[in-house]
Write a protein that binds this DNA or RNA. Sequence first.
DNA 1: ATGAAGAAGAAAATATTTTTCATCATTTTT
DNA 2: AAAAATGATGAAAAATATTTTCTTCTTCAT
Lengths: 286, 286
Amino acid sequence: MSGILQALREQQHHMNPKEQILAQFILEHAHEAVHLSITELAGRSGTSAATVSRFCRSLLFKGYGDFRMKLSAELVQPVPAKPSYQDIVAGNTLHSIAQAIETNHLRSISDTTRQLDLTEVQRAVDALHDARRIDLYGMATSGMVAYDCQQKLVRIGKMAQHWSDSHMQITSATSLGEGDVAFAFSYSGETPETLDALLCAKERGATTISLTKFGANRISQLADIRLYASSLEEGMRRGDMASRIAQLHVVDILFTALLSLHFDDYVPLLEQSFQEVKKYRKEKGR
Amino acid sequence: MSGILQALREQQHHMNPKEQILAQFILEHAHEAVHLSITELAGRSGTSAATVSRFCRSLLFKGYGDFRMKLSAELVQPVPAKPSYQDIVAGNTLHSIAQAIETNHLRSISDTTRQLDLTEVQRAVDALHDARRIDLYGMATSGMVAYDCQQKLVRIGKMAQHWSDSHMQITSATSLGEGDVAFAFSYSGETPETLDALLCAKERGATTISLTKFGANRISQLADIRLYASSLEEGMRRGDMASRIAQLHVVDILFTALLSLHFDDYVPLLEQSFQEVKKYRKEKGR
DNA sequence: ATGAAGAAGAAAATATTTTTCATCATTTTT
DNA sequence: AAAAATGATGAAAAATATTTTCTTCTTCAT
């Protein structure tokens, strides 16, 4: 904490009564204050526009506008790196919520990248490249990651299918075989539906890949190729938010690696699918 | 380079002549520009105050003051360690790919958080809280974000529905009305199917929210509440990877804010849905 | 009690921003 | 090719926002 808010806090007790009230309001609602006009700020803080104006000038700003701009500039300074993940509880300000989530997501991506085993990534890329058919399993939030992965694979001409229905997952897994890939997504690594499907696929001879949180878990134990995404500390509520971002991050790395290693095979397909969507829209008269 | 200046650079060539001149001036003298009043800026750049005002509004700022404040906020950011987003090409090593993707995702999240207008977030949270029914529109990658948002909302007992089928989107939008919310997700902000659905919902009186890349676009123009996620530079391949992460980041902030502001309403429901899924599994014999 | 000094708001003055309106240039239609 | 329509632009008017002035009120020292 530095600059204007710090100055306010320090000088607050040497101010006139109404100015103290105003300073207090600004300290408590800084992020809101910068969006208010001088009249609104006066109203919200129980003072008058004249007082606010004098207040700003006594702090040696050129006027309210100048004060507001400099305060707003101060408020967007990036958060200093916080050592650990932030938990979220009731009654936080919007600003602290946004910061906490940012911290969690940034960390979760950094951690995941740092601990990523590139040898396993390479094996996964090769398996996906060589796969005849690719099945993607995941429930709820992880289902979304699986679906994202499917979208990417389909765009480069892969036969990839995500099933969010647990019966269909098994049905599909049953028809896999040697040369096919089954890719399981699960934050906990214990999701029974996903586990079942992966097991079934493995029994039919498919190559199995897992993307779970770090540490031992039943799904990764089952997999031939094991990828991990960062997990939040145990007991942390809403851990799946950050983990989902981390999982998508891994999917992006996988997909980009696939593209980069087989550029000539895939990039034309990707461009083509992009152009076709555009063309199709034009033809509809847009 | 990101945010406002980036948007100016990208959109400069689609502007009116005087607006191009103005954009050019701002790009060249950004640090000076934020200290000028609208009249001074008009004078220095060879345009008129009216043009500057229109310019700011056409970029979807609330007015010149808003534009100036956000630009000023952008300018005080220290130069990031890694100056720009990394593009991905053929033949990279796995390590450089992972690093590039990490850089892009980290930046994309930081940029998005910094540019987030918390007033708009608050309005969106209120709208979602009060909503009788919530429709979520988005195609392809943005469809996934919409779906993610639906999952979260449903878990706290909201009637939320994502349609990935463009006909069903319209069908559903048709039955919306006053007190309902339509939430459109689109990276480009121009996706016709999403635009149509949002328009239809708006015509029926629903409150409309948009989450698009930064800068003026047709979807956000239509929306009552406008949220933005960071965009990569024009011409960058695979821009949607980072944008999807950024959009999910915004969804997380929205949802957490919703939870935090109405803790007692929602958290019990969330815990309950979590416990019920567990219980249901136990009963199946696991 | 009285006067001086300063705090604070109402209202006036000023400045800034936005909108309206008239003009001019460009494009489209006839 | 002329006429009509559209759109861009700046001047001026209108609307807003900010600052200053002026007056009242309170406090404190005498």
